[in-house]
Design a protein around this nucleic acid. Sequence first.
RNA 1: GGGCGGGUAGCUCAGUUGGGAGAGCACCGGCCUUACAAGCCGGGGGUCACAGGUUCGAGCCCUGUUCCGCCUACCA
Length: 883
Amino acid sequence: MIQLDKQYEPGEVEKRWGRFWEEKNFFHADETSESSAFSIVIPPPNITGRLHIGHAFNNTLQDILTRWKRMQGFNALWQPGTDHAGIATQNVVEKQLHQEGTTRQDLGRENFVKRVWKWRSESGGTIISQLKKLGCSLDWERDRFTMDEGLSKAVREVFVTLYEEGLIYKGDYIINWCPRCHTALSDLEVEYQETQGNLYHLKYPIKESDGFLVIATTRPETMLGDTAVAVNPDDERYQGYKGKKLILPVLNREIPLIEDGYVDTAFGTGALKVTPAHDPNDFELGQRHQLETVNVMNPDGTMNSLAGPDYEGLDRFECRKKLVHDLKDSGVLEKIEDLTHSVGHCYRCRTVVEPYLSKQWFVKAKPLAEPALKAVRDGSIKIVPKFWENTYFEWMENIRDWCISRQIWWGHQIPAWNCKACGKVIVSRETPDNCPDCSATDLVQETDVLDTWFSSALWPFSTLGWPEKTETLKRFYPTSVLCTGFDILFFWVARMIMMGLKFMGDVPFRDVYIHALIRDAEGQKMSKTKGNVIDPLEVMEQYGTDALRFTLAAFAAQGRDIKLAEDRIEGYRNFCNKLWNASRFVFMNLEDYKGSCALEEKSNLSNADRWILSRLNRASKEVNEALEAFRFNDAALTVYKFIWNEYCDWYIELTKSKLTGSGPERKAAQNVLIHVLDSALKLLHPFMPFITEEIWQKLPQDGKSIMVSEFPEYRESQTDEAVEKEMEVIMEIITGIRNIRGEMNLNPGLKLKALIRTQNTEIQKTLKEHGEYIRELARVEQLETGSNIEKPKVAASSVLGEMDLIVPLEGMMDFREERNRVEKELKKIEKDLIFLDKKLSNPNFVKKAPAEVIEKDELRKASLSEKQAKLEIHLKTIEQGLC
RNA sequence: GGGCGGGUAGCUCAGUUGGGAGAGCACCGGCCUUACAAGCCGGGGGUCACAGGUUCGAGCCCUGUUCCGCCUACCA
């Protein structure tokens, strides 16, 4: 006989089954299999990453889908992998070097890259082992890394193709520059933050005049690169200044006054200093007016020689300070105003980003975006929840060219070479030996690497083998679902769609499920600096992995952020224990059981048996439907309620008396008990893989693992409405008696008598046949049913639908308690009747509402009135008793 | 500036086509009823942010207000 401990201890169990699944290779998807495919690619975590609660959430959802589909018989592939995370990883290794008192420049490029690979092999696997701990059924055999040979080949292929088609170009543009990371960033990689700043008003003298123009700026240090001042041609204040020259203070450079409609007359003074090399708008102004560009900064954010001898070498913010001080002294500074404006920060290191003019590589986005827009518009790709589609459209319609070059060393080096001899740019899939134009062999490869997101954009097909035409690719592309947070909708999702359509000629996935962000209990974004992070590993340690997973699923309602409350996790830990103990009960009653989990002899089934089977069937339906629609919370809650409120609270209790016998009833009960447990475990398995496997393995089944067993499906023939109705009546009476017991403060152990008066012969029949349920669960020693039952003088009474429940209480009734109880009930009824009366006496309601609604309310009114009358009579007898 | 999401019980949240609101936790009362005190039984608790509108009827649909959060933008 199998015995379980009194409490479920997750730690050891999780380790054991985690190892088991991996050893048995159950996570592996076979590309030669004939079953229909289901595939998901993991959003590749950074190799620098450690599992945070967002990962836990994201991957739990994917694992639920994968395990569910796998159990449904699909050839399910969940494709694992990691991202090389260019800037982030380089930062980590540079920090290490810094501690060792050296720099990457000291090491040189080749050695530095070697060093990063070494770091990766030593520390880059952390997140992988953490995902395993979470129970993720990823096909580890297919683990990929964005810097792998195959994926790098894909990157080259894509780059060269796009270049050849004119969709990649190189040019001098203003880009976002991080002076700390020393690299360009794409527009998306800049995070704007409302910042309290200043608006400095500066006087620019007019040449050959005593007058001056006042310009306003938030970044005075950039004035050193000014090459014009612009005003709006319609601005009356400046009508007389057309064609004038201004003298740039400090540097005393002569700059023109230009007119451009871009200038907002309402902002500041209406005069705008123009710094084409340090502001994207000014850059465009500069192009329109053929202005000079003067770049006054070094790549590290210090001022260069063009900033003049007083400021050269100063950091941009020190320069600002000194400059403001100097301008004040020289009378150039008119005033300083407070101004709240948003300032861009590097998303990797939080340094203030500098708009910076430099030579970069770009992807022309518009031609790629158009088919990507269409795919979502025509439903080839469905985004869930749907409202995210608007956000997607918005961004895609206004998409700008994507700056893909990064001035770092860790990443895919751009496959372009410059011929030293003739200057030709060679972009090639293979490393060229000599220049095709001049045959020179002195070729120097572009030093820049590609944006990490460039390789991630290819993820759904590069991981499956592309550009090779592999079986895997054929079998699993397009993938079924992409499951991710909205924060990378543009970074990643949109770009995958563009690249997938471009290079595979088909969408990369059919559905995109966008889940919420996890916040702390106060609704704050979790961050290390705030110290409000919930570490999933700690939670798993404390409550068990299954409890964490279930909590996350139960919280995953669409369209709302998740405030993770720890007491919920505790609640679902308790659920594990509940399931554990229910199973314990089942096993305790199985010593003489010879059968299997399959439903055997159906003719001996009791009403309770048939009821739970019917309920199980409904639960299976709801779970499947909910998962199909990505309603994870509904699915989780359905299983929860089925197991706790139906199987444990009712079925197990109902079954106890049957188990005490030894006849066919006992055998039937055992069979149903175990069959339903088996099915319930399967329904729960995608959410709680470990505990379900642990229990399931002890069941009399001949499968290898619950994770490759068959997921319960809805079968219409198995729903038994008649039995459900009968059992409802019985449960209603049991609850009614318990209520009287509770409200009257009667000892739970006290045996009671119960009389049920009803005119309904169906109910009478049910009660005659199945009265033992009531006797056992409500602790009733004598149960009588009939149409003309007399109520004894001393009795508590309730009206339950068509039934009058009477509990004789001779010698144990407190009349005051009973009066309170009945009065409370009557009050409720009165309130409801007033409401219904009002509604039904409204001629418009009767005229316009659908007949069935009116009928329902009329029936309700009638039964409430009847109930009221009965209770009032009862109340009178109580009051007589009180006298 | 534009857009999106949200405001439901003390707390965290459900509420699928409009037919007078649910769960978990917390709370109150009673129970070691031999699976489970991480449990069992019973109970109290809500002007569904506010104001209008549509409708016989609104948590749900429309308009406005307000608060919170997020996204986005060329706020010198």
